[in-house]
């Protein structure tokens, strides 16, 4: 077992929790106050600083030569969890497990669309990087 493995897992967990909390604590409020410019500013501040923390400094564990785990994943998880918990008090009589499962059952159509679109883009970018001049010349070096 690699040294410090659980510590790396803990930092991955903490990095995910912070980027998720920032995105869904700050983004809706900024959007509701400043509209489009609020969302744009939030992208700069929240994604900018959490990218710096998670990926530039490396709080989310991404060893060299492995499959990249992007901070989009914790943001997605946080969006779903936040959506479930935040609006639960609107329906206080709701049964816990059934409420959560019902909410999860509703998100799959959009999630499938996002996953399909994202995976297609991943494949397309793989081939694009072989022909796009800046990337192609980079590969040759």
């Amino acid at each position: 077992m690699k040294e410090g493995k659980w510590k790396r897992r803990l930092t991955t967990l903490i990095g995910g929790a912070i980027v998720g909390a920032l995105s869904f604590g700050v983004w809706p409020e900024m959007w509701k106050t400043y509209g489009i410019m609020g969302g744009f500013l939030t992208a700069t501040f929240v994604i900018g600083i959490s990218w710096y923390m998670n990926h530039w400094l490396g709080v989310i564990d991404n060893p060299e030569g492995t499959l990249w785990v992007d901070q989009g994943l914790p943001i997605f998880g946080a969006g779903v969890a936040w959506g479930i918990v935040r609006f639960w008090p609107l329906d206080p009589a709701a049964d816990g497990l059934a409420y959560c499962l019902g909410a999860l059952a509703k998100i799959w159509p959009t999630l499938v669309c996002c996953v399909v679109g994202g995976a297609l883009a991943g494949v397309a970018a793989h081939f694009a990087k072989k022909v796009v001049p800046a990337w192609r010349d980079d590969e040759k070096k």
Binding site: G72, L73, V80, A81, W82, A103, C114, G118, A121
Partner: peptide, 12 residues
């Protein structure tokens, strides 16, 4: 329904 973010697409 809960929010589905484009982060899921970017991660994928």
């Amino acid at each position: 329904c809960p929010w589905v973010d484009m982060g899921s697409a970017i991660f994928c």
